[in-house]
Design a binder for these strands. Structure first.
Lengths: 107, 107
DNA sequence: AATTTGCGTAAGTGATTGCTTACATGTAAA
DNA sequence: TTTACATGTAAGCAATCACTTACGCAAATT
């Protein structure tokens, strides 16, 4: 039972669930109505999201409202941001090489 | 064979591979030396990363150099950034409610 | 020419995933 | 209090995953 954020958001359905409740908490049935899969399937996705801390559940009578707890997404954000310079090619392999050569010249 | 970026970076070994070559391209064996799993296992990870466009392979004699092509990570960055306000609680469910009430007052 | 090196890939395997149906429980409504 | 509703969860299943060993092939070395 590996339960880390990267794996949690790997599933498109779970990303959609997050998107659904991010700005408007919903109960489980309301969430399930937005998908083609069965309610228990959604229930299991919610469980995973809960276990890795991406959502929290608040009981209200017989309903369970799912609220976003997206702080964990910061881990993903940080991991990705490390590479922004690379993909924006402000710092690619060639730059790296040129910098190395420059440093060697200065020695 | 679902091959999207979110699923590609869900595996910790693949994230480590990306990290290894992000700033310094390496050939496959050199990459594999950094892990406990077998070389073919790494080769398969590389294949997945290649198929979803996160790395590119350049043949050099009998060696294959893996270079980063991290533009695809922007998809992840954008998806995550949508929720930054939520997890930084500058815009949580309560704010949302309060804003709604305010808007209703203005009508 | 023979051997070593770097790598891809097939086949097999156990674990995990995402889904289903079926059932159980607690709460609200009639 | 009987019935309907909201949900959790178990069991089963096909597909996928991450890994291994075994093999093949082309490029480099000897």
């Amino acid at each position: 039972m590996r339960r880390d954020v990267f794996q949690a958001i790997a599933d498109p359905t779970r990303r959609d669930i997050i998107n659904l409740i991010a700005f408007k908490p919903m109960n489980l049935n309301a969430i399930a109505d937005n998908f083609d899969v069965s309610r228990p399937a959604i229930s299991q996705h919610i469980k995973i999201l809960t276990e890795c801390g991406l959502i929290a559940i608040k009981k209200q009578g017989r309903e369970r409202y799912c609220e976003p707890r997206l702080k964990q997404l910061n881990e993903v954000a940080q991991w990705v941001e490390r590479y922004r310079k690379v993909w924006e090619e402000k710092f690619d392999a060639l730059d790296n090489l040129l910098e190395e050569l420059k440093n060697n010249d200065n020695q």
